[in-house]
Design a protein around this nucleic acid. Sequence first.
RNA 1: GCGUCGUUACUCAAGUGGUCUACGAGGGCAGACUGUAAAUCUGCUGACUUCGGUCUUCGUUGGUUCGAAUCCAACACGGCGCA
Length: 410
Amino acid sequence: MKPLNFKIEKKIPNALGRAGVISTPHGDILTPAFVPVGTKGAMKGVTPETLLEVGAQVVLSNTYHLYLQPGDELVRNAGGLHKMMHWDGPIMTDSGGFQVFSLGAAYGKGISKILHPADPSLQIPERSSADDGVARLATIGADGVSFRSHIDGSLHYFTPEKSIEIQHNLGADIIFAFDECTSPTEDRRYQEEALGRTHAWAKRSLDYHKSKPNHEKQALFGIVQGGRDEELRRKSAQEIAKMTTFAGEEFDGFGIGGSFDKDDLHSAVRWVNEELPEDKPRHLLGIGEPEDLFMGVENGVDLFDCVAPTRNARSGASLYTKFGRMNLLNQEYRSDFTPIESDCGCYACKYYTRAYIAHLFRAKEMLAGMLASIHNLYFITHLVSGMREAILAGTFAEYKAEFFKTYSRK
RNA sequence: GCGUCGUUACUCAAGUGGUCUACGAGGGCAGACUGUAAAUCUGCUGACUUCGGUCUUCGUUGGUUCGAAUCCAACACGGCGCA
């Protein structure tokens, strides 16, 4: 029995994009779809009921974080992630591969998922091997990665098998192979070396997963890496796509990973999706700004997860609107008694004003982040489901043009 | 009335002769955030500025000193104690 089924409904003419349906043991995901991130088994400030209302179909949690706290065995004993967090829809778990990056090479350096051209100092290749003398919480070995817990400093070791085992305990519908997300500041030699590791780990993740009964109900996605280099990206996509166990079993879908120079994102996605088989779902890991979502969908991405909508909402009152992002904490909104967006159908816009939500932020009321998260999740979720509708209607280009007529990144 | 303590920027609050436009916190203003080390982080917050500086401020006034938020005197206001 297959844990996942993917059906393409319609394609964008002369492009890689498509609309489809992913079926999982916990329901269907209509694609393209945005996947809200609830790292520690909870959407920060949003209940599962509200998450549904906001338009979420599936959520993504994190292996590393849940392993540290409360512990994957406890999650298993609680009846699994679905039951524990009271979310009956599909769940995905990231493998912890991103933490290899964020707690490793990127640790303490201000390097994030996306580098902007304005950070020239960060773009110089800094090393070609593991040691540059900078303290970090994750160090990479041949067999796996050792992590120092960011919570209590305790030492932990992840191998591909360990990551998959934890993900089996968590019980998500879609799980990811353990990979190394590299920094764009690494040179090509390092990217190649890291890619070799990611592929070896992918194979071990696949072998281990398919050898366990869990593979009947949990789908495993392999992750493509390769940095900004076209040859490495295409090679990675091909290798991950054709990777099989001794019994001939393949990945059920693919993740596209990496930390990007903003300009490299587009080309990397296109190279990869030109190589990946059409009949399996593709997930662009950690990307979710509107302009990137359009780019991704157009280039054949089916799923996106991103912390941006919730983090922006919570931590800066940065809200998505059809005109671009607005900072609700700006002076001008103090006595603005209109909704965040007058034609938005979300709960926050239906009942509350900018002035009120801004007040809640200043007063440090929890409701502030909740309402802002609801709006941002609604916005992004609906933006992507709107793309799906447009693909089905054959009007993707028009939908995109209409959106960018008013939206600007500032 | 006498005694005593206090008065620092929007607020609270350090500072008791030069390194003081003056620590720190809050507030305010702005910015950042893309598989969540994140309800977080960064910058600015006396005025003017060609961004190198220039000028003005520590209750008020006067004084001591090369130099005062810091020492002295008087005054104003406030707390406490005694009448």
